[in-house]
Computed example of a mutant assay.
Amino acid sequence: MATGHTDPQRRERILAAALDHIAEAGVAGVSHRRIAARAGVPLGSMTYHFAGIDDLLREAFTRFADHIVAVFEQHLAPVDGVEAARQAVTDLIHALSEGPQRNLVLSQELYTLAARRPEYRELTEAWMLRSRQLLERHFDADTARQLDGLIEGLALHRALDRAPHDRELTLRAVARITTV
């Protein structure tokens, strides 16, 4: 394996390894040694690229939040009109709930970390703001806030329910919130 400056992907591998580890073992199991081993990099690379575990967690979770915002954008950006936006929100909820279990776990790990450690709340607040801004392209600010909560809640419930509700129920819930 390449070392030092000849390994431009090392930082990215470390971040990916951190997210993979968090998804499997939780934030509590994160350590420089475990992440370095998982990324296949020397332990010294951890402190070279990140000031500490908190720096690593912030950047890894920021990357994860960017990914989820991109999923929101993929569903919401191309639509025009309220009815198409309702369909897009419904599609988004189902995409999130039927997507990789890893994303569900990472979301909950970040929320738990932010609930326990206020310094991580700015990360979740920025994520929620970006999600709401995408929703505000189609709905007023209050509706966007309500939809953001609905998206999170229904996606979580669908992902964890042994008999997840169907698309029609999701669409009716979205319509209730978005009908003036």
Rank of each mutant, 00 (worst) to 15 (best):
R11D: 07
E12M: 09
E12R: 13
I14W: 01
I14T: 00
A16C: 07
A18M: 06
L19D: 01
I22K: 00
A23E: 03
A23R: 01
A23H: 03
A23G: 05
E24N: 05
E24G: 03
E24L: 02
A25Y: 15
G26Y: 00
G26P: 02
G26C: 02
G26Q: 04
A28F: 04
A28Q: 02
A28N: 05
G29M: 02
S31N: 01
H32W: 11
H32P: 01
H32Q: 13
R33L: 12
R33F: 10
R33K: 10
R33S: 12
R34W: 06
I35N: 04
G40W: 09
G40S: 03
V41I: 08
V41T: 00
V41S: 03
P42D: 10
P42C: 08
P42E: 12
G44T: 15
G44M: 11
S45F: 05
M46K: 01
T47E: 01
T47W: 02
Y48C: 04
Y48H: 09
H49K: 03
G52M: 00
I53D: 05
I53H: 07
D55G: 09
D55T: 02
D55V: 05
L56S: 01
R58P: 11
R58A: 11
R58E: 14
E59H: 04
E59R: 07
A60M: 01
A60N: 02
T62H: 08
R63A: 10
F64L: 06
F64Q: 09
D66L: 08
D66F: 09
I68M: 11
V69L: 07
V71R: 10
V71P: 07
F72C: 10
F72T: 11
H75C: 12
L76Y: 14
A77D: 15
V79G: 02
D80H: 13
D80Q: 14
G81C: 10
G81S: 07
V82W: 05
A84E: 15
T90D: 03
D91G: 05
L92I: 03
I93P: 12
I93Y: 05
H94C: 12
H94V: 15
A95K: 00
L96P: 12
S97L: 00
E98K: 06
G99Y: 03
Q101K: 10
R102E: 02
R102P: 01
N103R: 03
L104F: 09
L104V: 10
L104A: 10
L106I: 04
L106T: 04
S107Y: 13
Q108R: 15
Q108V: 15
E109I: 13
E109G: 12
E109H: 12
L110G: 12
Y111C: 06
T112W: 12
A114S: 13
A114M: 08
A115V: 11
R117K: 12
P118K: 13
T124M: 01
T124V: 15
E125A: 12
A126V: 06
M128L: 09
R130Y: 11
R132G: 09
Q133I: 13
